[in-house]
Design a protein around this nucleic acid. Structure first.
Lengths: 250, 250
DNA sequence: AAGTGGTCTAGACCACTCA
DNA sequence: GAGTGGTCTAGACCACTTA
């Protein structure tokens, strides 16, 4: 009595999403092109509005499309900023330096925004790494071409930086690392821990992230030559705006 | 005649999602706990089924919850594997080695799966980096505890590795890097480019990714001491399963 | 003013899980 | 068998964009 094992056709909304995705990834639909709207999908496929919406929401949640209210749904672009980790070992010194993804920050400056400096009680992570509960915290937002791309929060052991320009909005020439140097605590070693996840609503708002965009979370710890941790920097990056590059030896 | 500028309350489904998210992030709901189902949300808030679903879909798309058909929606866990880039500069040599996110691959072995070895025409990226159109390709999947966590594809210049064990399923002791050494082409320098994005359906399937999980894409290029590129390795990582760690000097 | 996406209701049938 | 999530229909009102 067993029926033939049908390979189970995917639901309609998936099939439509798959077709549209193919058109995007194949280049038939390009950056900024308008996708068929809900009404055209309804009439073309003979489906209800909710089903058409579901199909489009798949692509939006994959970060391949972006909805604009009152206008339409549009193909999304990926023009990353290249962020170098270990620059010192720059491949230009020994390799041809060909990279897979083009990056194009070409001289366009970062704008720093929403600077906050405060003395606070350290959150759990910072307390563990910096081995103290009292920290100075520096928060800021970076934008390129009026587009916010990164949120950064730095933690410094309070007793170490108390009274220095690190506790001021303007840290002076060379920034916080130069000031740490003035204090005899110049960073010599770095560790970066890299994760990716979907943004919290707060992060999505502050970075103006459309749906379907993950964030890259970089936790960077700076150590002095003696191995004393002097800074913990948490960076939340718009994953659609960044490529991280690391170079190292075998 | 202008009305007072109402701060515009968020839609109901967002409010519900926000409440549930708070319970997850605060720890009130923990790994594996069951969230209120669609029916309970409908009666508790007096809303339609589609609205309840929409609220839950927010959390699912954020990777904070996972639906199980016929059972419920459950809080998701994050127990990452720590993947070291530049091990040689291991912080244990100079720092206390405190890390922010615990990792726990503690001796659990990687299982290698779905190995494919073939001679192919190089895709665009690989052709650019390796400077050839003929490549040997090695594909495989890695799993930990029966959970697939990584898809990897390596490309080698065909003329370089032709006839070596790199073209066989079993590459022998030491793997492909040892074989490259046998050929006098031992990798000495590495470049890694790191991105994050939502998975393609194929990737989501092969990695059994629930909704809301981004992938981390690592493109690793291996160069000989003379700067000749000898391998391009594209790794697709389940972002919920990994923390990448890089150590370097100022 | 017409068209678009955003939100929401009130139903329906299905496949699956679990007691 | 009762309950769950997955898919889908057929409506509705709204805010917004575009012309």
């Amino acid at each position: 009595m067993s029926e033939s094992p049908v390979p189970h056709e995917p639901p309609i909304y998936r099939q439509i999403a798959d077709q549209l995705r193919d058109k995007i990834l194949s280049g038939e639909l390009r950056d900024g092109d308008r996708l068929p709207g809900e009404n055209s999908l309804m009439s073309e496929y003979g489906i209800a509005r909710a089903t058409a919406r579901q199909a489009l929401s798949v692509l939006i949640n994959e970060g391949l499309a972006v909805p604009k209210r009152g206008s339409g749904v549009y193909v999304r672009l990926f023009k990353p900023i290249r962020r170098h980790g270990s620059r010192r070992l720059s491949r230009e010194q020994w390799g041809q330096g060909r990279s897979i993804w083009e990056a194009d920050t070409r001289g366009r400056p970062f704008i720093v925004d929403r600077v906050e400096v405060a003395r606070e009680r350290a959150p759990r992570e910072a307390a563990v790494v910096l081995d103290t509960h009292d920290v100075w915290v520096r928060r800021r937002r970076y934008s390129v071409d009026d587009r916010p791309v990164q949120l950064a929060t730095s933690y410094f052991p309070a007793e170490l930086v108390e009274g220095s320009a690190i506790t001021l909005e303007d840290t002076g020439p060379g920034g916080v690392y130069a000031r740490l140097g003035d204090l005899g605590q110049a960073p010599a070693h770095f560790t970066e821990e890299v994760r990716a996840r979907m943004p919290r609503p707060r992060e999505a708002h502050d970075l103006s992230l459309p749906g379907g965009t993950p964030v890259i979370v970089v936790l960077r710890t700076a150590y002095t030559a003696r191995g004393i941790p002097v800074e913990l920097n948490e960076m939340i990056l718009d994953a659609a705006a960044y490529v991280l590059q690391y170079d190292f030896d075998a």
